[in-house]
Amino acid sequence: MISNESDGKIIKKENRRDFLKYLLTTGLAGFALATIYPVISFLKPPKQREVKVSSVSAGLAKDFNTGDYKIIRFGKVPVIVIKDEEKDFRAFSATCTHLDCTVQYKKDEKIIWCACHNGKYDLHGRNISGPPPRPLDKFMVVLKDEEILVTKSS
């Protein structure tokens, strides 16, 4: 009878201890979450509203000699505008598809070249040599009264 009573007490005591343990663990976990979550959210840079750009001027055609190139900003993206040997204008994303460097036009080799890892693209933006895994994104070029207008390729 006595032992049963003490057994009951022990079980009761253990239940109470388990409950307190549970309460403490959940409380601590909640506290940790409430501390960490705002910190992680704070570190995540907020999305900035992007201005939608449909076309950007690259200047006047007469300012370009054959083989000249210019890098312009198309929204957030740098775009390279090239006047090739056939006197046509071409435009591509200026960001190398390998590791994000900005490319340049090599007049003597007639290639678009990335100095960071020697990546090469032809005048159609196709990756022809070196580590770039993909071609450069194409942009359209329209001449409007001597002005070079770069627009997103559809």
Binding site: I80, C101, Q104, A115
Partner: peptide
């Protein structure tokens, strides 16, 4: 940000 990566980088 609008200049190409320099040669020999």
């Amino acid at each position: 940000p609008l200049a190409p990566a320099p040669a020999g980088i």
